[in-house]
Structures are given as C-alpha cells and as structure tokens.
Amino acid sequence: MWNSFKTDDRLGISAEITTYAAGNGDEIHAYVVRPLADAPVPGIVLVHHMPGWDEFYQEFAERLARHGYLVICPDLYCRYGHGTPDDVTAKVRSEGGVHDDSVVADCEAAALWLRGNASCNGKVGIIGTCSGGRHALLAASRVGEFDAVADLWGGGVIMAPDQLTPARPVAPIDYTAELDAPLLGIFGNDDQSPTPDQVDEHQAELERHGKSCEFHRYDGAGHGFFYYHTPMYRQEQAMDAWGKVFAFFETHLKS
C-alpha cells in the first residue's frame, strides 16, 4: 500500500535500460528495475500502452519495484527504430500497429527472463494499461507463464468482426477458456473502450468459464485515469485502484 513502508526499512531500487532475447530471438530493449532485497522477489512484466515505451512507463516500473517487485518493461516497438517515444509510436501507428503475436512472444520471453533471474522468486505477474492491458490479458491467456494478470482499462478485449485487423486478428475474450491466471480488472465507468457493458460482458464470460477474476469499476473516471501527466487523471480513483493492484499482486505473487 501507498506510504506503508517503515522509515527504517532498507529501501532502494536500481534501474537501467538493457536488452534481452525477446520474441523470435530478437534482442530488444527493456527497462528493468530491481528493488534492493536480501531474498528473491516476485517478477512483473509491465506491458506499455499504445502511446509507446515512454516516461510514464518508466515511472510505473519504478513504482512497482519500490513495492518489492523485479520489473521488466519491454520496448514492444523496438523493432521499428529509435527516436522519441512519440516519433516511434507515430511510425508504429502508420504501419497498422504492433502485431499481437509479436507482443505475446516478447512478453513470454520477458517472463522467462524473470524466472531465470536469481533475484526472482519464481512467481511472475503481468500488467498493462490501455492497449497494454489488452496485451497483458492476451499474453496471460495464450502463454502459461503468468501467476497473475492485471488489465487496466484494456480496450478491444471484445471485438466485432469488422474490428479485427491483420495486427489484431483475434479478440482476447475468445481465449478466455485458456486463461489460467487470476485476473484483476480496473475500469472507469466513463470509458468508451471498454464500455461498462463490455466490462460486464467480459466478466460474465470469465465467470461462465469458472475463471478467477476481480473487477473494480470507478465512477467519475474514464480511460487512463492513472495518467497524472494528462487531464484524464483522477486522483481519488487512481489511488484507490493502485491499492487494489498492490493487494492483488501481494496475494498472488508474494504469498
């Protein structure tokens, strides 16, 4: 929980951009943040959003690490070239978006990287926001490497046939039967994608398959309400939802 540390705790993190063998064996960049710890800690794969591998995600990774997780945040756009995050994102956008298969492969490789790290306790979660939430759910559904998954306002989990594209050929909800990890969902009731009705439909599908899920819906919040650098930020809802995220990972990765 926020501000729950003791002032004499041994705290600290180290962070760096490194590379790892991702999907297809490609060496791609990742932002890795390690907490100071005497014993192995759980790992988390952090899946960045459509606006790119940006500074918000670096700070997101650092926050998770401050709460005791070894975090790897892959640059899912690494293969498109390098520049400022918005320039790279513009190129990805112009080419129809990153392919779901590419993201899933990079996330699976990131999970294996964590499990192979001596400072990881062997448990690995995955989390993302926006398209990253959708991708986190997709990866957890298609790859049996995750012990917990958190989808924060991922749109496009439910997709009409005319919304499927070469880069996004299958709706994640169609993989519900394959999801083995417990799922946390965080949503704003003013969001247009996913809409509250889509969130309800997704939850019903999870329950129909007997899946473990915990959904939280917030009034007065729309899409991206964690983004403190934008007008979408909603302080009260965001801080409550952060508590839900930490509690969820505490339960499934630290116990």
């Binding site: 918005d86 112009s94 899409h223 007008p231």
Partner: peptide, 22 residues
C-alpha cells in the same frame, strides 16, 4: 491518444520520411 494535446484523443497528422529515420 495524442502526445501533447490536452484531450484523450486528437486528430494526429504525421508527415514523414522513414527512409531518413523515425
């Protein structure tokens, strides 16, 4: 989603030449 505009979405116009870099 835009990068700089203060709204959730924006019309995004990009004039590019990726042969010269992103």
């Amino acid at each position: 989603h835009g990068t700089h505009s203060g709204t959730e979405h924006a019309l995004l116009l990009d004039f590019t030449n990726y042969d010269l870099g992103v």
